[in-house]
Simulated assay, not measured.
Amino acid sequence: MIISSEQVSVGHPDKICDQISDAILMECLKYDKSSRVAVETLIKDNQVVVAGEVSTKHFFNLEGIIENVLEPYGMTDVVVTNLLGIQSPDIAQGVNKGGAGDQGIMFGYATDETPEYLPLPYVLATRVLEKLMSLGHPLLGKDAKAQVSYDYERKRIDTFLVSIQHAETADLAKVKRIVREAMMAVALRYRQNLDFKVLVNPTGRFVLGGSFADAGVTGRKIVADTYGGFAHHGGGAFSGKDPSKVDRSAAYMARKIAKDIVREGYTKRCEVQLAYAIGVAEPVSVYVETFGTSRYTAKQLEGMIRERYDLTPRGIIKELHLLDVDYTKISCFGHFTKANLPWEK
Rank of each mutant, 00 (worst) to 15 (best):
246 V>H: 00
274 L>G: 06
138 P>V: 03
238 F>W: 02
141 G>Y: 00
110 A>C: 09
206 F>W: 08
319 E>R: 03
299 K>G: 14
312 T>M: 03
131 K>E: 14
191 R>M: 13
14 D>L: 00
211 S>R: 01
281 A>T: 10
281 A>W: 05
204 G>S: 11
261 I>S: 04
54 V>Y: 04
262 V>I: 11
320 L>C: 12
26 M>V: 13
273 Q>K: 05
66 I>S: 07
138 P>D: 05
36 R>H: 12
339 A>F: 09
278 I>M: 11
71 E>H: 12
344 E>H: 06
111 T>P: 04
78 V>A: 12
43 I>Y: 04
133 M>I: 13
125 A>G: 15
262 V>R: 01
80 V>F: 01
71 E>F: 04
336 F>H: 10
126 T>K: 09
262 V>S: 07
46 N>Y: 07
49 V>S: 14
246 V>L: 01
261 I>V: 13
276 Y>M: 11
18 D>N: 03
196 F>C: 09
89 P>V: 07
241 K>D: 12
128 V>G: 01
95 V>E: 08
51 A>T: 15
40 E>V: 07
183 M>C: 10
104 G>W: 05
72 P>L: 02
39 V>F: 07
152 Y>S: 10
332 C>W: 09
95 V>A: 05
345 K>I: 13
132 L>R: 00
314 R>E: 15
76 T>P: 06
234 G>Y: 01
145 K>I: 05
154 R>Y: 11
52 G>N: 07
52 G>Y: 00
108 G>D: 10
186 V>M: 00
154 R>H: 15
62 L>R: 07
164 I>V: 11
55 S>W: 01
32 D>W: 00
83 L>G: 13
81 T>L: 14
47 Q>M: 12
34 S>F: 12
135 L>V: 09
178 I>T: 13
18 D>Q: 01
214 D>M: 06
317 I>W: 00
24 I>K: 02
107 F>C: 04
87 Q>I: 08
44 K>L: 12
65 I>F: 11
198 V>Y: 00
113 E>C: 02
60 F>A: 12
145 K>Q: 08
331 S>G: 11
297 T>K: 03
183 M>K: 08
144 A>M: 01
128 V>H: 04
117 Y>P: 09
42 L>H: 14
331 S>K: 05
152 Y>F: 10
212 F>Q: 15
323 L>Q: 15
175 V>W: 01
292 G>N: 09
217 V>R: 14
327 Y>N: 11
119 P>W: 00
